[in-house]
Amino acid sequence: MANIIEVKNLTKKYGNFKAVDNISFEVKKGEIFGILGPNGAGKTTTLEMLESLRTPTSGIVKVLGFDVSTNAHEIKERIGVQLQATAFFDFLSCEETLDLFGSFYDEAQKSSKLLEEVSLMPKAKTFVNDLSGGQKQRLSIAMALVNSPELIFLDEPTTGLDPQARRNLWDLIDAIRKGGKTIILTTHYMEEAEYLCDRVAIMDEAKIKDIDSPRGLIRKLKAENKVEFSADKKIDLKKLEKETGALTADYVEGDVYSLRTKDSHKTINQLLEYAKKNDIKLDNLHISQATLEDVFLSYTGKSLREK
């Protein structure tokens, strides 16, 4: 399958600070490619270099076969962009906003068709300011579709949305992909990357740590399961790790502990035994499959969630 994006040894420096440090990857036609990482990892900078909004310090970036440093105009004509901040003009309705942005391109879709696509038809005449957060995000996705692009960039499309609105947006993004478009998105939500992406690049501190499908990344992880429980007594983490044969033992919060293990059956048995012996009352015990969150933790040693 043809590569729609090719990035080789891409670096972006601001003075001495490396925002993006020697990263390479490809995006294939028709896939949803995710860049996952915490705030400040360099996700947005990477995306904006692909969108020809920023000039790379070094490295090669080819988008749809065009070089970003020489063919910015051709690229801009063919890509759809949603920036992190939903950027609208005040005092324009949804319809007018789409018509206006459409006028910037050689060819543009009708605003009514776009509004239909993102289910905003009833809001056609509503001022952009009066939309809810989820509706604004959907409008900005409609703006990204206005020139019928082959390739769409979405920068943290669901940040700040409530779960319901996020779920709606996922369905929308999925539908767009089914329409044959290639999507590259950044996120710091694990569930989002797991649910949407065909492949995920894990990015932290300006570098890409790994690229694979979400399942592939989890499979590579040493620990595939997670055992969580709460205890009425304080347990030493080192001791817990040793007694249960878990790979790691951590506090989650308060009296809640978390164990990562390859063999959940063995770990649980040993945990119960240990609790009995030390007269510890366990509660809320549950096992779960490892998630991208755990993958991220193992790669970077830190949690993705903003503390």
């Binding site: 801009k76 004509e77 962009v81 901040a85 950027a87 942005f101």
Partner: peptide, 16 residues
């Protein structure tokens, strides 16, 4: 205001 909201950047992302 347009700059702070990112509208200017959004315009730059179009072929205008």
């Amino acid at each position: 205001t347009l700059r702070e909201r990112g509208v200017l950047k959004r315009l730059l992302a179009t072929p205008i």
